Simulated scan of single mutants.
Amino acid sequence: MTTVTKYERWPEDDGGWSGLGDWHEPPEQLLARMRDKIGTVLFGKEEVISNVLVAFLAGGHVLLEDVPGVGKTMLARAFAAVIGGEFKRIQLTADMQPADVTGGSVWDGRNGSFLFVPGPIMANVVLADELNRTPPRTQSALLEAMEERCVTTDGESRRLPDPFMLIATQNPWDYEGTFALPEAQTDRFMMRLSIGYPSREHETRLLAALADNRMIDPAAMKPVVAVEEWRRMQRECKTVHVHPDLLPYAVAIVSETRSAAELEAGASPRASRDWLRAAQACAYMEGRRFVLPDDLIAVAEHVLAHRLTLQPSYAASGHTAASVLARIMRETPLPASVSSGRRRR
């Protein structure tokens, strides 16, 4: 295992998670197998798959902003399969009501009473497809579920399954018939990602598999881990050590987004929390029990950029939230005590 200098609280070890119980296989190897298995149905998108695993390990949700037909549903189904979880899909439309998402009470004539019928939100992995095609009233039905892991119907709060992970897709904002997501909802997504079109090589591979009837059905994939093992991974992920000097560095960057001239609105304290959790998950996926500065840097754009609102004048001149964030990170030096912990490029 790599030893990082000037991190005196991180002793040399063999990379195991001593004191946390024995695994039949190291967690980082299980996660690598999960990534590879999802990669058998989503060709050439290893980085996207890894980022989704990071977000879900950290207990977050993912917003996929992409054009139709690039594999968003397949990704969600495959992830549910490799953790042995239940998958449900919500096809959001302009006429949907909140009860269509959360569920509600219906009259049971046989018993002469109301019976609660769970909505599709009651699953381990939920795909909310085309989230920005449904009006804000229905979008808001997801707010409590995403943050509190519960839904309130008929005055009663009901817990969601554990684990609960949401993948929401949205069409590009300029598509006809879309509603902008409110800031309160955007802020609840740990990461915003884009799958993008496949390369020619991978699209050819996809067509060859279809022609030979070799395509794998994500729903038929066997789990790599059990749901309880996945929950354990999420718990262990929170124990990954973060050097105290990395915390002011992260806060300095987030604070700068709130005062940058190019931005109308900066990142929230929830963004700071999500950024830290995502960095811990990055380290955990590599089998480390400590966060490197590069873990924070690797996930910064995915976690922070979608929470930033550009000033219209800067947007018109070609700036993006990602470019402003990159400028802030370039101008914010790492503390000397942790700068030696960078990976060698």
Rank of each mutant, 00 (worst) to 15 (best):
W107D: 14
R137N: 15
D95E: 12
A81F: 04
D100F: 07
F116M: 11
V82A: 05
F114Q: 14
V62L: 05
P120T: 06
C150S: 15
G112R: 08
D108F: 13
K72E: 12
S140K: 03
T134C: 08
T138P: 00
R110A: 15
R149H: 04
G85I: 04
A123T: 02
L64P: 12
P118G: 07
E144S: 01
S105Q: 14
G59L: 12
P120L: 11
N132L: 10
G60W: 02
L92S: 12
R77P: 03
V151F: 06
A81L: 02
L57H: 03
L115W: 07
A78K: 07
T152G: 12
G85A: 14
N132E: 05
S50K: 13
E47H: 11
V41M: 12
G104P: 05
I90A: 05
V117R: 11
V101Q: 02
L42E: 03
E144A: 01
I83N: 09
E46F: 03
A94N: 15
L131T: 04
A80G: 09
P120K: 13
D95H: 07
G71R: 11
E65S: 08
T138N: 00
V151H: 01
I90Q: 01
P98L: 06
A81Q: 04
V52E: 03
K45G: 01
G44K: 00
E65D: 08
V117L: 08
S105M: 14
A78H: 10
A99G: 04
L143A: 07
L143H: 09
A80I: 02
G60F: 02
G104R: 01
R77Q: 14
I83R: 06
M74E: 08
L42V: 12
C150Q: 15
V48E: 05
K45R: 13
V41L: 09
F116E: 05
D66Q: 08
A94E: 13
L131M: 13
W107N: 13
W107E: 15
W107L: 15
L57E: 10
